[in-house]
């Protein structure tokens, strides 16, 4: 999984913007075994941060106990329709990605 794993919905209402993010990711814990009994190496998102106008509005550090396809919802003050959010994720393997979402 390289690019395009994030689905985000951001909605501005009454001076606040509510953000819902779902990342398509298996969040492999490293405890699971495959059919041959070999451990599947851990592969999960460690950090997901959301920036609005260059200012960080949320940073989530996740462990292996976050479910598959992690979901994150929060609200921040400010934000207007048409603005852009930058969502950056970092995997434990070192992979990173930045995706953007528009406030609606």
């Amino acid at each position: 999984m390289a690019k395009g794993i994030i689905r985000a919905k951001a909605k501005a209402k009454g001076g606040n913007t509510s953000v819902k993010i779902m990342a398509k990711h298996d969040m492999e814990t490293g405890n699971r075994k495959d059919k041959k009994g070999k451990k599947i190496p851990a592969k999960y998102i460690q950090t997901m941060s959301v920036a609005y106008n260059g200012k960080k509005v949320m940073e989530a550090n996740m462990g292996t106990a976050v479910s598959k396809n992690p979901y994150l919802a929060f609200t921040f003050e400010g934000g207007a329709k048409g603005d852009q959010l930058d969502i950056t994720w970092i995997e434990n393997t070192g992979n990173t990605g930045t995706e953007t979402a528009k406030v609606r």
Binding site: M58, A73, F74, F76
Partner: peptide, 14 residues
Amino acid sequence: FAIPAGTKAEVSCR
């Protein structure tokens, strides 16, 4: 979760 100033102290996750 790190909550910067201006973000509501409410988060949901699974």
